[in-house]
């Protein structure tokens, strides 16, 4: 048996594990109760992994600066943007977004910005927080 491998294995048995831990060790029976416990500070959770400096997270859309030029619609690969003709603004479906940031690049007024927010999972893709400028 290869001895160096066994040596490494025994070392790994005793050192810190490489797996990133879940926020809580096991899934709580009641999510809402757990969330309340966390908010009141009674339950400690493992913090999420650090994100890099120029992270591509959920888009931020500045409605007021938008001039309705529709250029962002031309480059959005997943067609996550929809034009609202009556307002002359766009609507953004976060659930469809691929976070490529091409809209932020092409926007002449820089109305789009990639934020560092990434905890955007939800059960309803048309929920208020998952549609920008609904």
């Amino acid at each position: 048996m290869p001895t160096s491998t066994v040596f490494t294995l025994i070392k790994q048995l005793l050192t810190r594990k490489a797996t990133n831990p879940f926020p809580v060790k096991y899934t709580p029976k009641n999510m809402h109760a757990a969330a309340e416990l966390i908010e009141s500070g009674k339950l400690e959770i493992n913090p999420p992994v650090e994100i890099p400096p120029d992270y591509r997270g959920k888009l931020k859309y500045d409605v007021d600066c938008c001039i309705g030029c529709k250029l962002c619609l031309k480059v959005c690969p997943s067609e996550a943007l929809a034009f609202k003709p009556e307002e002359k603004k766009v609507k953004h479906y976060v659930a469809r977004c691929t976070f490529c940031g091409q809209c932020a690049n092409i926007c002449p007024k820089s109305c789009f910005e990639l934020t560092e927010e990434f905890l955007i999972a939800g059960t309803d893709k048309y929920a208020d927080e998952l549609v920008l400028n609904p």
């Binding site: 031309k74 480059v75 959005c76 690969p77 997943s78 691929t98 490529c100 091409q102």
Partner: peptide
């Protein structure tokens, strides 16, 4: 069915 810039992420 897409323009060249849309195809990059695809």
């Amino acid at each position: 069915h897409r323009n060249p810039l849309k195809v990059i992420p695809l």
